[in-house]
Design a protein around this nucleic acid. Structure first.
Length: 136
DNA sequence: CGCGTGACTTGTA
DNA sequence: TTACAAGCCACGC
């Protein structure tokens, strides 16, 4: 297994992998984050691809809510392990109360994780109708 | 080191 | 809406 060495690495070394895992662990239930967002929060802006790679290796880690990480289009990215994991991911998100539209997409405007929400109010342009209510 | 590949993203057509 | 290209980092050969 090629990724196993990678897993051993993220467990031992405290590099980008550990940071990414740290961020993913912080994603609250009932919210979703994009790969790029996780990368940025981990102090690795623009390295969304690395996030996906890390999640692949950490897929067996039950303590890691990998299912809350989706791509910037609000869709679940397919992987090499077949559609099984993708379906499971969607089911888990729906189980947390996150709805999917007809095209299988999640509204990041409504369900996207906002770790540092800007003063909930009208101080920010474009922050009108959304961010009004929070799930859970 | 170089190359190809990958759970990505953004911009452009 | 889909398809490509360029850019990012890490891994295996």
């Amino acid at each position: 297994m090629t990724r196993r060495d990678a897993v051993a690495r993220e467990e031992g070394a405290a590099g980008s992998w550990a940071r990414i895992r740290r961020v993913v662990r912080r994603i609250p239930r009932g919210r979703v984050a994009t790969y790029g967002q996780v990368a940025a929060l981990a102090g690795l802006p623009g390295q969304a691809r690395l996030v996906g790679y890390v999640l692949y290796a950490a897929a067996t880690d039950g303590a890691l809510p990998w299912h809350r990480v989706i791509n910037a289009q609000g869709r679940i990215s397919a992987r090499g392990e077949g559609p099984g994991a993708s379906v499971l991911q969607r089911l888990r998100l729906e189980q947390e109360g996150i709805p999917f539209d007809a095209r299988g997409r999640v509204s990041l405007e409504r369900w996207g994780w906002r770790p540092r929400p800007p003063r909930s109010g009208d101080a920010r342009p474009g922050a009108g109708a959304r961010a009004r209510f929070l799930p859970g």
